[in-house]
Amino acid sequence: MSALAGGPTTGAARTADLDGAAVPTIAAEDVSVVIGGQPILSHVSVTVAPGEVLALLGANGSGKSTLVRALLGVMPATSGTVRLFGAPLGPTVPWDRVGYVPQRLPAASGVPATALEVVTSGLLHGRRLRPPRGARARALAALESVSLADHAHRRVQEMSGGQQQRVLIARALVSDPDLLVLDEPTTGIDVPTQATFVDTVARLHDAGTSVVVILHEIGAFAPLIDRAVVLRHGRVVHDGPPPAARADHAGAHHVHEHAHPDPEPPPTGPTLNVEVP
């Protein structure tokens, strides 16, 4: 957390000074996503300025993950436009400047892959279909930055849920992105991995990187967040300073209401809640 001492807003300020009216990192206008006739996102517009840390908040099923997937082109938007670094989604986007950390590794297929191989795949983007020179050294450095250097040659399938997630952070960081997108980095995670997430975001924030982070609760990220967008039923209901948590949300007896079941938790990283009356 020592990176925070440098001052949380220097990055954003520097970028703005350099080129006055900077091109927004993300400019999404009027994005709607309809899946199977159901409107998942309705007319969402979001802008992320260079160096800004944006939290995407909302209950489960409010459309946060769908929005992020639409912003990155993982899922096609039904209508509306998305521009990344000024370029419309497609081959002209400078994809090497985008880093994405999904919620978890896809289910194992049985073919082993080492942490090093997974992280190296983060160096491919757009039309770069083969790893660049020095890929191995860069991948090892990225693993080092999430304290997994000793595990570079282990099978990711044999790692704990938290270690797998740190591999995914390293895969996003290896290309030294100017935009990092994190999907629910605090759900069902061990303490060292949570610290890695917060530390990573703090470090990138200082370096002027834009960050979009999906959060269920603001929690440990609170001091880093510049702006929050809150989604409800697929619509933006708030866009501005991070809102306060509901009063009943912090108590020991508050009940999490889930509209539909959570995705399966990682095999080895369940959240343990011992309620002490």
């Binding site: 997937r69 082109g73 896809p106 795949s121 491919l124 790893p131 997108v181």
Partner: peptide
Amino acid sequence: LGLRSALFAVSHDEEFARASGLP
């Protein structure tokens, strides 16, 4: 063999490959 890395990336995690702009 020539496109081993790219085919690995797409086969390993298709969602991430899309978010990296890979074809």
